[in-house]
């Protein structure tokens, strides 16, 4: 190391060598704002353009699926005689006649199907089914998974071992086979139940097919959630055990409950959000092979399936449900990715 004896470029003054006071010193340190986990995450999320766009799209799809049917002049099971197989924006002859007579006829924006049902409203209802399945199934999975995982993690020991062994076995069961079997078979006892026991008549209101899907998904998909929650509880227990012992008092049960909610919330939200598209995926698959939601209730999967029969004459009919389902799944995936980046960076991959 060489010394550089360059002459100072400025004149020194005795006052320069007076001690600096505290304020002067502190003014140098630029304090970083400390922000809470949630605020910080929320800010990161808001900055993420892709995630925000997906979020807005999802809201729009919700409006499309739940609000617009209220104002739409056609209903999803209404078969308009004489208006079968219309192309998008086309009118049938009776409708043209009505229009000529000066009446207002709402256009079939996406045309009609072979039974004369308006495709647009069916698309709305199909999206509704997809969203319902995704949300309800994920919430059920979240509930069952977190309760099971918390119990296993909290009690630990033999209880944990036994409960996790069950999870392991369910994990090895090829889920899709059982789902298909259950979907086909569960319908009948449910129908019986709805018809014979008045307390269960609501099943018919929601639809046996949908109830079936909810039950089947929550029966098989909770195991992943249970594992995640359990490991979170175990880590927390480990950490809290030390602090709780130090602090003396304060039952660790309460601490765990409080911390599980605050610390694991990020992970749970992200996992649940990413569960939604996979539930939607499976539902559309089931409806496509013909064992999902029962007719006349449309589902994006079953709409695509019927469109295939007329693929040579009406290939465009496939486009609407296909695009819709892909858009919904894509948006939820991107939203989940965004939430993960914002709230749970360590969960990456």
């Amino acid at each position: 190391m060489k010394e550089k004896k360059n002459p100072l470029s400025f004149q020194l003054d005795v006052s320069d060598f007076l001690p600096a006071n505290k304020e002067e010193k502190e003014s140098l340190v630029i304090m970083r704002e400390s922000v809470s986990f949630w605020r910080d995450g929320l800010r990161r999320f808001e900055k993420n353009k892709i995630a925000m766009t997906s979020f807005i799209i999802i809201i729009l799809v919700f409006i499309f699926a739940f609000v617009m049917p209220q104002f739409y002049p056609y209903s999803y099971e209404q078969q308009i005689r004489g208006s079968e197989n219309l192309a998008p924006m086309a009118y049938s002859e009776p409708e043209l006649a009505l229009k000529a007579a000066g009446e207002k006829v709402f256009p079939h924006i996406l045309g009609t199907d072979s039974l004369g049902r308006d495709t647009m409203i069916r698309l709305m209802m199909g999206s509704r089914i997809s969203l319902l399945v995704g949300l309800v199934a994920s919430i059920l999975v979240l509930l069952i998974g977190s309760i099971y995982g918390t119990v296993a993690g909290y009690f630990g020991g033999k209880v944990d071992l036994f409960m996790m062994r069950i999870v392991d076995i369910i994990y090895t069961v090829p889920d899709i086979l059982i789902i298909i079997l259950l979907m086909v078979t569960l319908k009948y006892p449910l129908k019986d139940l709805a018809e014979t026991v008045p307390a269960f008549s609501w099943i018919n209101v929601i639809g046996v097919g949908l109830i079936c899907i909810f039950i089947v998904f929550s029966l098989l998909y909770w195991v992943g959630m249970a594992r995640i929650v359990r490991s979170q509880v175990l880590t927390l227990k480990e950490q809290e055990y030390v602090t709780a012992a130090r602090a003396l008092g304060a039952g660790s049960g309460r601490i765990i409950r409080k911390h599980l909610l605050t610390n694991s919330m990020g992970t749970l939200i992200v996992t649940t959000t990413l569960q939604i598209p996979s539930a939607i995926f499976t539902e559309s698959f089931l409806s496509f092979i013909g064992i999902g939601v029962a007719a006349p209730m449309p589902s994006l999967g079953s709409m695509a399936s019927t469109a295939i029969d007329g693929i040579y004459s009406y290939p465009y009919r496939l486009l609407a449900p296909a695009l819709m389902i892909s858009l919904i799944i894509l948006s939820f995936n991107l939203l989940g990715d965004g939430l993960r980046d914002a709230f749970d960076p360590k969960l990456k991959n």
């Binding site: 698959f285 999967g301 296909a322 892909s326 799944i329 894509l330 995936n333």
Partner: peptide
């Protein structure tokens, strides 16, 4: 790609 079901 991961958002498009195989039937689509």
């Amino acid at each position: 790609g991961i958002a498009v079901p195989s039937f689509v």
